[in-house]
Nucleic acid binder design. Structure first.
Length: 563
RNA sequence: UGCCCUGUGGUGUAAUGGUAACACAGAGGUCUCUGGAACCUUAGUUUCGGGUUCGAAUCCUGACAGGGCAACCA
């Protein structure tokens, strides 16, 4: 067993490696980093990586840097830099004064490259793009050496400097490491270190026209920052020998790279490229559309940072490919919100109820408990009157045998109020139910103790004259298959769930919600957790996003009944 | 058919040569003024074959399966 008994986070293979490194004094401390490329918004998979890197540093009393890997000016943008910073902060992590950019190291990287050229370990290749591609070979076919491979050090130095000085156009030359064109590891077949790009960089502007490749910049950036454990995903496993080669040749600090399997979530996709496509083609309203798996979307939808961190901790770390069941995430947010969110009543699809024996014009202020899980959250008053609305789903004219709610001639309790009985169903000319005429039993007032009458169902409601209109957005999974990105023959967009968003514009909520502020979270009793939308909600037009439903055993019974 | 990595219930993760466990999901139940929450019960797992060992999920070996690698992307 590993030694982290003090915290309750489970151990994993990465901690075992770190423990070993510390024990053998390979490193005296732990310093990690989170190295995103600012070319898109962060998603839940990145959240796992953030939690891992910052979490590890916290546990070992070390530090974590935030470093943007901004080596490709054509794809990167400050908008992304800002969103990434915001998301990490929101998750609750702090890089303090250690905000870095790979572009901070362009000068150093250039010097390192010169050093390798001088050692005869790098050369300028003037072959065409196609030529280089051809000569690289294939996994089962060795590469062949470039005819420029044996240029003299002096010539390489001269050419490389002139590349930097802008004497050549894009693609005319590249700088390559001189390693082994026949290596079974493709990454070692003289990888490209620099390419010419006459492009403006979001931070260095027009200062450079040669840009380092990720493989050349990444390991050295970690080294420069004194990173001890460079944690990354599996696809970089084959790159590790290259990174090792660079730091060894350069004789600089050698971080240990550890690879883990990236997070996959069922019913969604994690590819930044595909996510960008959804945004650009308008399948969603933006990176923060609450159906997206991005951190900003989860935030807007009402997820708490704590729930995402717990989720990340609980799914564990390993090297095998995995697909985490979306239920797992939903469990995590329900668990958190159950403990902390205020209960209110909201009617999604209003159905009018008139209480025939309730005095006209009378209004009672009834006591309602704000959170049965937390007494300190107190109580509030909810107005009750002759005309009410209940949810249409809580009435069935011809009830299923396990339906415990309202039906003709049957009784149900109105939460925090009275037991009512449905006496008559009023329909319009087309046979649509217009209104329910009911009676209430005055003896059954909540908390009065006058009656011990029991009913099987309790439903929520709002008072017609007091209710506040609201728009409610119900979200379902964005895709209707568990692994939408898996199918190689079908475009992932063909799996988009056409019903992933349902907008209800005539919902009614209790008056307490009149002053709800963007970002406020509530449990609508019996329905789920809802969050005031941070973009579209206003004082005169409340908009609620459904974060997640409550667990719903009735839905299961219903589903079964349909089969 | 080269190199690298990975194979444990439905899904994840543990067990580090000594009784295969935990969570989610599933099934059933208790309770309930949320068909919520909580609680209880239950079913289900080591890819296959050899070997080492008193003893193998664990070590060795051979298969098989899955993933990754052929951007001047990261």
């Amino acid at each position: 067993m590993s030694e982290d008994i003090e915290n309750n986070k489970p151990s994993n293979f990465i901690k075992e490696i770190i423990d070993e490194d510390l024990k053998e004094k390979r490193y005296t401390h732990v310093h990690t980093r989170f190295p995103p490329e600012p070319n898109g918004y962060l998603h839940i998979g990145h959240a796992k990586s953030i939690c891992l890197n910052f979490g590890l540093a916290e546990e070992y009393g070390g530090k974590t840097n935030l470093r943007f890997d901004d080596t490709n000016p054509t794809k990167e943008d400050v908008e992304y830099v800002e969103s990434i910073k915001e998301d990490i902060k929101w998750l609750g992590f702090d890089w303090e004064d250690r905000l870095f950019f790979a572009s901070d190291y362009f000068d150093t990287l250039y010097e390192y490259a010169v050093k390798l050229i001088k050692k005869g370990k790098a050369y300028v290749d003037s072959s065409s793009y196609e030529q280089i591609k051809e000569e690289r070979g294939a996994p089962t076919k060795p590469g062949v050496e470039s005819k420029y491979r044996n240029r003299t050090v002096e010539e390489n130095l001269d050419l490389f400097e002139r590349m930097k000085n802008g004497e050549f156009g894009d693609g005319e030359h590249v700088l390559r490491a001189k390693i082994d064109m026949t290596s079974p590891n493709m990454n070692l077949r003289d990888p490209i270190m620099y390419r010419i790009r006459h492009a403006e960089h979001h931070r260095t502007g027009k200062e450079w026209c040669i840009y380092p490749m990720y493989d050349w910049a990444h390991g050295q950036s970690d080294s420069i920052e004194g990173i001890t454990h460079s944690i990354c995903t599996l696809e970089f496993e084959n790159h590790r020998p290259l990174y090792d080669w660079f730091v060894e040749e350069l004789e600089i600090h050698h971080p240990r790279q550890i690879e883990f399997a990236r997070l996959n979530l069922s019913y969604t996709i994690m590819s930044k490229r595909k996510l960008l496509q959804l945004v650009e083609e308008g399948h969603v309203s933006g990176w923060d559309d609450p159906r997206m798996p991005t951190i900003s979307a989860f935030r807007r939808r009402g997820y708490t940072p704590e729930s995402i961190r717990n989720f990340s901790d609980e799914v564990g770390i390993a090297k095998r490919d995995n697909v985490i069941d979306i239920f797992r995430l939903e469990y995590s947010i329900r668990q958190d919100l159950n403990k902390r969110s205020m209960r209110v009543m909201g009617v999604l699809n209003p159905l009018k109820v008139e209480l025939l024996n309730y005095p006209e014009g009378q209004v009672e202020e009834l006591d309602a408990i704000n959170n049965p899980e937390d007494e300190s959250m107190g109580k509030r008053k909810v107005p009750f009157s002759r005309e009410l609305y209940i949810d249409a789903h809580d009435f069935q004219e011809n009830p299923h045998k396990k339906f415990f709610r309202l039906s003709p001639g049957r009784e149900v309790r109105l939460r925090y109020a009275y037991i009512i009985k449905c006496e008559e169903v009023i329909k319009d000319a087309d046979g649509n139910i217009e209104k329910l005429l009911c009676t209430y039993d005055i003896e059954t007032k909540s908390g009065s103790g006058k009656s011990d009458k029991k009913v099987k169902g309790t439903i929520h409601w709002v008072s017609a004259q007091h209710a506040v209109n609201a728009e409610v957005r119900l979200y379902d999974r964005l895709f209707n298959v568990p692994n939408p990105g898996d199918d190689k023959d079908v475009d992932f967009k063909d799996h988009i769930n056409p019903n992933s968003l349902e907008v209800l514009t005539h919902s009614l909520v209790e008056p307490y919600l009149k002053n709800a502020k963007p970002g406020d979270r509530f449990q609508f009793e019996r329905l789920g957790y809802f969050c005031v939308d941070s973009k579209d909600s206003s004082e005169d037009h409340l908009v609620f996003n459904r974060t997640v439903t409550l667990r719903d055993s009735w839905a299961k019974i219903e589903k079964r009944g349909n089969k």
